[in-house]
């Protein structure tokens, strides 16, 4: 569905995690952030940026 809209499906991921896996959580966050940073901003974000004042976009994205 995302690919249909030109969004990379890699921007969505599912992880399995138990309550005892605190370190794994930190690991996942770090990994996923690295992946998204490598991908850059989402195409929707770019499109929203174009049509809106920056402050509005930030409010929307937050």
């Amino acid at each position: 569905m995302l690919a249909m809209l030109g969004i990379d499906p890699a921007r969505l991921e599912f992880y399995n995690l138990s309550a005892a896996q605190g370190p794994r959580w930190a690991e996942i966050c770090t990994e996923f952030t690295a992946r998204i940073t490598a991908l850059g901003p989402s195409p929707i974000w770019f499109a929203l940026q174009k049509g809106m004042k920056p402050t509005e976009t930030h409010r929307q994205a937050a």
């Binding site: 991921e13 995690l17 996942i28 992946r35 929707i44 974000w45 976009t57």
Partner: peptide, 17 residues
């Protein structure tokens, strides 16, 4: 939920559980 996040320009979503 996922679509709404992307709709608002979120760059990535993950689900953990």
């Amino acid at each position: 939920y996922l679509l709404r996040a992307f709709e608002r320009g979120i760059d990535g979503v993950f689900v953990a559980g």
